[in-house]
Nucleic acid binder design. Structure first.
Lengths: 251, 251
DNA sequence: GGAATTTGTACTCTAACCTAGACAAATATA
DNA sequence: TATATTTGTCTAGGTTAGAGTACAAATTCC
């Protein structure tokens, strides 16, 4: 079931279960209906269900039906947009970072544009994977202009947050723009995040600027949606015309 | 190429092109390298490229290479998190709404939990698709407690924003929580959004509460990432410890 | 002009995937 | 207890996708 209709259905059902669309202990639609919904034969649906069963996400009982089974399955981390990880470590859970790649190369056009560099400028590129309690949940690719990247060492990246390294570099990080989309997992990130190629990922890109509007860092992050989710609270302001972000009181 | 390795590669490359990973007019990796990257044969890569070419996203020239071709291709809309669509219509572009489903049903466990209802409570469920200049970009499923849903008519949903309808119902919408993830397109939403099953979608869920903390509306939205992107500006606050959302000055 | 690169085309073989149907076995329901 | 529902098992057959290879044709680069 490397890549096939059965796998599509498997992935869709897995997302639905993880997303609470089907509640714990609840019955899934019967195989015949799932087959109709996806326009495939029952045999194909069965292969998808078999994969889910093997993963322990569902239980099938002949004559009765198919049921969601989430006993000890962890819920995704809910991260605030503004500050991603500060409170995680405070909660006593341990995130570890693995550095997969590090080097200097010519900026691709898209990166050069984002950072406001010349087309042939050199940038430091690093690829890191972050894991929570041993379970990888994010794949981070960062681009930093060469001059700034040289202010810290490769080994620093594996142990310290990049933003704190940039702070020490003497540049004043003032503002950032970020945008969130969705992407399919390519083989390389799929391997790094321990998922299958073609899974859905949250794609976040962020560019950080200093006071003078110079680009300091460009980040392309991919998150496993079953382990990481972006959360935000909104409050209506007095006029009632707009919704504005409500800042949480967590440290 | 309904669902296959070739299709995975096609989708991945399409995302990369739309996401600016390969710049306009730039050359893609040669077929041999793409094949190696994805661990498939060159024939398979060629089928993916053929699909991209048919869509006009690339141009292939024998002996020269394969090139990105984004002439009149529209860029995705960048929406702010707090208020999604207010400024869109102000820009003169027209969004249209199509009501795909409307009715009252028993709340699923997940929905009941989100809204703080009893397990067997009835809710109004509606499914809408929103399009910009005729191109669909979002698939919205909303759940509203029955008593509140009865305060407006089915026809209202096709013409007015739901939040304004809820305003008129006499309930004071005070705060909301929303979270963003990613999901694969199921056949039904794929058809509604004019994409292929298995494409990556941004999944946003939002629950709106009134002053007393009662759930008023639960929204499950799916967005095409090539047409819609969530954007946010961040500013560092004085202490330097946190990043906080910077409110834009657009009306 | 010549060599190297890159896309285009053609072919075979194999394996995996999917459909369709029928029936059995377990369970739930009236 | 009888009936309907639902998962489990099996078979047969057809289609498609993919790997691998080889060579042709166009382009680029020296």
């Amino acid at each position: 079931m490397e890549s096939s209709k059965a796998r599509q259905i498997y992935l869709v059902l897995r997302d639905r279960i993880a997303g609470g669309h089907y509640a714990d202990k609840a019955a899934l639609p019967v195989e015949q209906d799932l087959a109709a919904e996806h326009g495939v034969s029952r045999a194909t649906v069965r292969r998808a269900l078999a994969a889910l069963e093997e993963e322990g996400l569902i239980t099938r009982r002949q004559g009765a039906g198919t049921f969601v089974s989430l006993d000890g399955k962890p819920r995704p981390i809910a991260a605030d947009f503004s500050d991603a990880l500060a409170h995680l470590t405070a909660m006593g859970r341990t995130t570890t970072v693995q550095l997969l790649a590090f080097g200097y190369e010519e900026a691709s056009p898209a990166i050069a544009d984002a950072l406001g560099l010349q087309r042939n400028a050199m940038v430091q590129r690093s690829v890191r994977v972050r894991a929570l309690d041993g379970a990888p949940f994010s794949h981070l690719t960062t681009f930093v202009p060469e001059a700034i990247g040289r202010t810290y060492a490769e080994a620093d990246l594996a142990s310290k947050p990049l933003l704190s390294l940039l702070d020490r570099s003497g540049h004043v990080l003032a503002r950032a723009t970020q945008s969130v989309g969705a992407q399919l997992a390519t083989p390389d990130v799929a391997a790094a995040l321990d998922i299958e190629t073609g899974s859905a990922l949250i794609a976040l890109t962020r560019t950080v600027f200093d006071q003078d509007g110079r680009g300091i860092e460009h980040l392309a992050a991919l998150y496993r949606p079953d382990r990481y989710v972006f959360r935000m609270d909104l409050q209506r302001d007095r006029s009632g015309a707009r919704w504005s972000p409500a800042l949480r009181n967590e440290t």
